[in-house]
Amino acid sequence: MEGKRRSVEASGGSVDEAVEKALEELGVDKDQVETEVLAEGSRGLLGLGREKAKVRVTLLEPGEPREELEEFEEPAPARADVAEVALEVLRNLLHHMGVQAEVVVREPAGDESLPIVLDVEGDNLGILIGRQGETLRDLQYISRLIVSRKLQRWVNVVVDVGGYKRRRERILTELAERMAKRVMDEGRAVTLEPMPAHERRIVHMALRDYESVRTESTGEGGRRKVVILPKEES
């Protein structure tokens, strides 16, 4: 008899945020789960009527293939067609924002199951990133929502600006490794600064294979942070 697969439901201000919270709780990466969008959420008007996004993330067994969690009468559009729609949507958004920039599709490294990544390149694009990447997350959320509605199915589109996400991931990984070494040397916990869910997950993932330390998240809301602790010997 097959064991029941572990699932986690999570809510957030956007689908991305909800998924990141679920992945953080499971301690896995996106390629190890199936994700079902239960509610896309709504930002409301002037802060009124806002509804949170909700997802169910299910851990795949080793070697288990992914399955579509929703059935559609029409076949899924080709990746190239999705990329074309996503490019048009993001370029139009930037045009209406008065931002001059080039948008290109980052080609997957031999794996077409990866999300479509749109790279925004240009000068003085900090306005598109914002504090701790908040504006960039909003831009990605809006882009993904419009593309999904145009195609009548949920589409995983990632937006990056000037390589910000890749740089940030490298910085957080290096920070996690330095702090892990301090924990191992001093034998006491280290608490990092508050981070959004997707950045906390980067820290968790960076240290998940360390034998001498473990990580956990603590705090509430915008004050939630990662603590790196010595792993107790069994």
Rank of each mutant, 00 (worst) to 15 (best):
A180P: 07
V82T: 13
S234L: 12
R91I: 02
K30E: 04
L151K: 12
K4L: 11
N156F: 02
R153E: 04
R178H: 14
G41I: 07
G163I: 13
E216V: 13
E20R: 11
E70Q: 07
R208W: 04
L23A: 07
D31N: 12
V15D: 05
V57Q: 01
D160F: 02
L93D: 12
D185K: 15
E121R: 15
R50M: 05
E2A: 08
G221R: 10
E220C: 03
Q100L: 11
I228E: 08
Q140C: 06
T35A: 01
R166G: 12
K4E: 07
E107T: 01
E84Y: 11
Q152T: 02
S113C: 00
R131H: 05
Q140V: 10
I127A: 08
G219K: 11
G13M: 15
V85Y: 03
V161K: 09
T58C: 00
A189L: 10
A83E: 15
L151D: 13
G44I: 11
D29R: 13
K54Q: 14
E174N: 15
V227P: 03
G133K: 09
E71S: 14
G222M: 12
E67R: 00
K165W: 13
I202D: 00
A83D: 09
V213E: 08
R208M: 05
A189K: 14
E107H: 01
V103W: 05
G130Q: 04
E24P: 02
L26G: 01
